[in-house]
Design a protein around this nucleic acid. Structure first.
Lengths: 212, 212
DNA sequence: TAAAAATTCAGGGTATACCCTGAGGAGAGA
DNA sequence: TCTCTCCTCAGGGTATACCCTGAATTTTTA
């Protein structure tokens, strides 16, 4: 049984590099390559790959968003992030959005194939370097007390709307309440999150994982 | 529908070689051949090719300059560099001046046709060898900054300050500039990052890894 | 069931952000 | 030299965010 994989990357050289790398590996079949997010969304249901190698850095859609969207539509699909970004924040966001693994683009053939196998078995594959970073990050975080403030239902809704760059007026219309109510909620958000303004609200919210 | 191509090269045997190579390929029609830059500039508007195969090494004009000039006048034209220069600096300069691909003169017929097709579809074609060189070069400098908007030094400073929850007035004092200047930078940040307000700036900045 | 928390909203205010046009000077690069 | 980008700043305006006090109603919880 061959494993069908597809690749989304806007760099032709990367696409071809991977294809070439897998050319003489009969158990792996590259069924599709896409160079942007829209194309991926359109064509993936035709190619039906088991695994998608996904670059974060795409011209049209953020790879992290794309990951989330794809997994909603195709829960069976395994997504393996393949990128140059070493930042832990990207790793965390990819994994929390359902990615099955994270590889850097300097990956060698053997490692790529091992990653594909691991992912196919339903397990998670992280490159050594990434795993260590993640570990250190987790250990560093354990000590520092991170109290996540409890937000009410309404506050979460307002928070969400603020992060959508809506104005108070727009939020009031969206939630069917008065402007004054929205302002109250925002003030409470600032108070609870220890922020001086909406920018602070968003920063702390992202930091606490209250937003994706 | 046939694809019209033209060739600029000062070596007659190369011109003829390519023509011969494409002679029994009906979907490709060689509509013009030029042996220097001036001639190319003069005659290309008459021949109206879809793709131009362009040598870098021309007697009168530098092929890289010619590429830039041609694309200013004919933005629809696809230019495929065809040369013996393997140096990455040439490749980069051609591509950054808008060339759609880069072939060495040892190209075989099938590869040439594939390159032409790829370019015609609006994608980029690079010969394997060139691709690998570029890949190594790219890996050497992990600067994946394709979709990350380029911010100026001042814009980065203002961005940083905004993320510190400072007001415009506070930022102006911190950076020793007027309030109006800070506002200008913030507007430019919104524009560059596609944000509707400061919240959007921060979100996109975090998203792009410009912060933290 | 009483207390606490959450949701709603008002009046009234100041500070700030947002948005436009326009423009001079400095520096880099062709 | 000319062009382009960046940095700087102004006038003048509207919209919005921020901040206070106070309070009625509903919902949750102890």
């Amino acid at each position: 049984m061959t494993t069908k994989i597809a690749i989304t990357d806007d760099h032709v050289l990367v696409l071809n590099g991977i294809k070439a790398m897998l050319a003489n590996t009969p158990e792996i079949d590259v069924v599709g390559t896409y160079d942007n997010g829209q194309q991926t969304l359109k064509k993936i249901n035709l190619d039906k790959p088991d695994i998608l190698l996904l670059d974060i850095n795409l011209p049209d859609i953020n790879g992290i968003e794309l990951c989330k969207t794809l997994l909603k539509q195709y829960p069976e699909l395994k997504i393996l992030a393949l990128t140059n970004f070493e930042e832990i924040s990207f790793v965390k966001r990819m994994l929390s959005n359902g990615a099955s693994g994270y590889l850097l683009k300097n990956t060698q053939k053997t490692e790529l194939i091992e990653a594909l196998k691991t992912v196919l078995e339903g397990r998670q594959y992280l490159q050594d370097k990434i795993e260590k970073k993640l570990m250190n990050y987790a250990l560093g975080r354990q000590n520092s007390e991170t109290f996540i403030p409890k937000l009410t239902r309404r506050e979460k809704e307002v928070l969400e709307a603020i992060s959508e760059e809506l104005t108070t007026q727009e939020i009031s219309k969206k939630l069917f309440v008065s402007i004054k109510t929205v302002e109250t909620h925002r003030m409470n958000l600032m108070s609870k999150l220890g922020a001086k303004n909406s920018v602070g609200i968003i920063k702390k919210a992202i930091d606490c994982g209250l937003l994706d």
